[in-house]
Design a protein around this nucleic acid. Sequence first.
DNA 1: GCTGGCTTTTGACAAAAGTCAAAAAACTAT
DNA 2: ATAGTTTTTTGACTTTTGTCAAAAGCCAGC
Lengths: 197, 197
Amino acid sequence: MAEQLFLGDYQNLFNLFDNIYPLKDEIKSAIIANSEVIEVAKKTKLLSVDERSNTIYFIIKGAARIFYLDKEGKETNTWILFENQLLISVYSFYTGNPSFEYIETLEHCQLIAVKREKLDELYLNFMEFNFSGRKLTEFYHMRNEIQANELRMLSAKERYQNLLERNPQLFQRVSLGHIASYLGISQETLSRIRKQK
Amino acid sequence: MAEQLFLGDYQNLFNLFDNIYPLKDEIKSAIIANSEVIEVAKKTKLLSVDERSNTIYFIIKGAARIFYLDKEGKETNTWILFENQLLISVYSFYTGNPSFEYIETLEHCQLIAVKREKLDELYLNFMEFNFSGRKLTEFYHMRNEIQANELRMLSAKERYQNLLERNPQLFQRVSLGHIASYLGISQETLSRIRKQK
DNA sequence: GCTGGCTTTTGACAAAAGTCAAAAAACTAT
DNA sequence: ATAGTTTTTTGACTTTTGTCAAAAGCCAGC
């Protein structure tokens, strides 16, 4: 009988993949061998502006945000991410160019970290792993498209109501200031919207 | 000596792929066998709201837009696409769910059309084709992320100046009304921005 | 060269959201 | 519990962008 691979912290990541296309144990072992599980404190910067991102993270436990600073130095959050999501500065990780955004933990986090060279090796050594990678990228691509469309087509209030409905846990774990910024509105406007109804 | 594959209309599509990861002739043949080259007139709808998108297009010649209707029935363009770009309603094509947006040609177009079932077959039959598919998806994903960030961080005027600088050809081929809509502003606002400087 | 559409511009006004400053409320750590 | 920090709310005012309506400009086809 085949020996059972010890998955531990990788359980959820592999579930994610297996739901797309069952991953061979060989690939799972290679993923484990080519990544590491790290713990980082709240408010740790995982990436800063002008650095080149060379790591993709999977959030086992915790929360993080991606944000940039505008011309006046004000922070704007573009993503807020939780358990079982990938944490990546898309532009810098894919292109290798210096980042225009920051990645910062919002809570104490447990993460799986994979370096780009290792990931590239995995993709080259296991061609069928690209099937999973493609599907996952398609999913994140779609999520972005939806986000961009909502920024265009919905008013501040509608975006708030949408988020509240679809992601109520967010409001338990993240300050309204961060949420306002993620919604693309000022904190004061969010406060007024919430009072209204 | 190996027989030279006749590429014809597929030349540019294959160049795109070859720049990512050289495609075997076997795959190229399969792509040709599983797609078709079509001509469509200006203002043709390739996808309408509530239809399920089952085709991805590569633009050989021409231009097209993707847009949705807001609550008041006003059109908003989310993408304007030209030669050598992929034309797809990301949400509907990836999920198979009914579309919330339209795809419409802006000019007479020559397109390569691939049905989803055929594309899925190609991905399953040629695992290394997923390598190319993944990279291409990553590229489009990145482009979306940039678009969403610009919608957040730049003012109407800055978005206009950016677009003018990076995509001047757009202004030759597409009406200002369509461009304003793509920039997420009203036609009148665009007109005023243009007058200013 | 004129006619009948589109497209673009202009003006007056309205709406949505932002800014600044201060108060109130909610947490945190000692 | 309390002092100190951070977060959230409130009020007054400003800025940006949108809306509506009309005029002007442009272009295709007869």
